[in-house]
Design a protein around this nucleic acid. Structure first.
Length: 453
RNA sequence: GGAGAGGUGGCAGAGUGGUCGAAUGUACCUGACUCGAAAUCAGGCGUAGCGUUUACGCUACCGUGGGUUCGAAUCCCACCCUCUCCGCCA
């Protein structure tokens, strides 16, 4: 969420910066809502203040026992009682509209983010390693995995459906080895605290990190039946009536499957005021991620690239506002370390304004080399959200003056485990269909050096 | 799942319809005393929004949402959460 003050004081320049990422801010509507809010709120608060002072007078009159005066003042209050009720309703409505309006506005890009419309305008920052060369015809990870008997999409489809996968034997172990290796590296070498978090979260958490209200279609929703007593049912019961069928109505309260560990981990600080000395906070979590992939029919349908369920090791930093860009570079480096240790060629790109996610102020993607596709594919995305998520979450710290101030939040994949597995299979494949196990993973594979049939 | 207790400021903890945004303690800040510190004494000390924007004024907030009332932390209803006991359980 953006700072409402910035929108009030400097609407045009906010609109301009948002336009650079392809978002057309409806300034006319905002101005209208603001004008209405100002008027309604002003009137409402004035009448509330009248009511409060009159009510106090009633109290004082009663204390003196002056019943006549009491009646007089009550008559005065009665005069504007209805108007006040109406204003309170009107105020709630306009405040709600304003909140809704604000909650779907994306973050403003950092000044250094290159302008652009799409993926094509992203800027390559660096290339590390050189694309793997082969003396034979390369196979993609599907052929390799199926050839080894460890990757089985047919059975996964039978069990669940399209866009699920099933790993067996050494490949399943390799998948686990990757996650373990990443976790160990980030905790032992990079100073992150390992966390184990809920995979189902409430709507409030999804709102906090920005997935809701705008991107509900990308999520898997898990409704849970809840029942609330209908209006008046409780009162009737108190009068001796037995609860009737229909006294309760179903209320929808959903859980959501996390699309990334960013959601539960970042929300740890929601509605918290952390002390200055606790910063920076650095957390790592290995979780499954669930995405409905709505609107991506036909894209990456083959293989493990785009799945409804995949594992990811996620890095999250909660930092002082002045340190967030430093933090982003550091976090990016931590993610890169994994690829370097695995010996996988990759490149880092800085996303342009038009390709960034809703909540991000700046994003680096790391793309790994996939020989079978003869291209680099995204394997990590590292972003600085500045105070955008913190404002939604009311995540604050006490500054040097002792005043609460919004934190900055960062996160990045370190890395997506499924795609890393794909990259290892493809880059370490051999002519005979076997796959060499990268050295850093061997301790996690019981010393296995090669996976063959 | 059944029975009971409870959710108040950073923390602890009063408050059961009328100067209560909330006693008191503690933590924290300032000043006095001191060579300095501790102790002691005096004062200050919540968050958010709005209006003038320096001083100030108003409004909201006592788990959440409704209701009763001129007036609700306090009464009523629902929900959420925590704790204790019993049952069940990976």
């Amino acid at each position: 969420m953006l700072d409402i003050q910035a929108l009030r004081n400097d609407l045009d320049s906010v609109a301009k910066r948002l336009a650079s990422r392809g978002y057309d801010l409806n300034t006319a509507e905002l101005k209208e809502l603001e004008a209405e809010r100002k008027e309604v709120q002003g009137k409402k608060e004035y009448l509330q203040s009248q009511r409060n002072s009159k009510s106090k007078e009633i109290g004082q009159a009663k204390a003196k026992g002056d019943e006549k005066l009491v009646a007089e003042i009550m008559a005065e209050v009665a005069e504007f009682g209805d108007e006040l009720k109406q204003l309170e309703v009107a105020d709630a409505i306009v405040q709600g509209k304003l909140k809704e309006f604000l909650s779907v506005i994306p973050n403003m890009p950092h000044a250094s983010v290159p302008e652009g419309k799409s993926e094509a305008d992203n800027v390559e920052v660096r290339k590390v390693g050189t694309p793997t060369k082969f003396e034979f015809d390369v196979k993609d990870h599907v052929s390799i995995g199926e050839g080894l008997g460890g990757l089985d999409f047919e059975t996964a489809t039978k069990i669940a459906g399209a866009r699920f996968s099933l790993l067996k034997g050494p490949l399943a172990r390799l998948h686990r080895a990757l996650a373990q290796f990443m976790l160990d590296t980030h905790t032992d070498k990079h100073g992150y605290t390992e966390t184990y978090v809920p995979y189902l979260v409430n709507a409030e958490s999804m709102r906090g990190t920005g997935q809701l209200p705008k991107f509900e279609d990308d999520l898997f929703r898990v409704p849970r039946a809840k029942f609330e007593m209908k209006e008046g049912a409780a009162e009737r019961a108190l009068q001796g009536e037995i609860y009737q069928r229909g006294s309760f109505e179903a209320k929808e309260e959903n859980f959501y499957l996390i699309p990334t560990a960013e959601v539960p981990v970042t929300n740890m600080v929601r509605d918290e005021i952390v002390s200055l000395e606790k910063l920076p906070m650095k957390f790592v979590a290995h979780t499954p991620c669930f995405r409905s992939e709505a609107g991506s029919y036909g894209r990456d349908t083959r293989g493990m690239i785009r799945q409804h369920q995949f594992d990811k090791v996620e890095l999250v930093q909660i930092v002082h506002p002045e340190k967030s860009y430093e933090g982003l570079e550091e976090l990016l480096g931590h993610a890169e370390t994994i690829l370097k240790k695995l010996g996988l060629p990759y490149r880092v790109v800085k996303l342009c304004t038009g390709d960034m996610g809703f909540s991000a102020a700046m994003t680096y993607d790391i793309e790994v080399w996939l020989p079978a596709q003869n291209t680099y594919r995204e394997i990590s995305s590292c972003s600085n959200f500045e105070s955008f998520q913190a404002r939604r979450m009311q995540a604050r710290f006490r500054n040097a003056q002792g005043k609460p101030e919004l934190l900055h939040t960062l996160n990045g994949s370190g890395l997506a485990v499924g795609r890393t597995l794909v990259a290892v299979l493809e880059n370490y494949q051999q002519a005979d269909g076997s796959v060499i196990v990268p050295e850093v993973l061997r301790p996690y594979m019981g010393g296995m050096e090669k996976i063959s049939k």
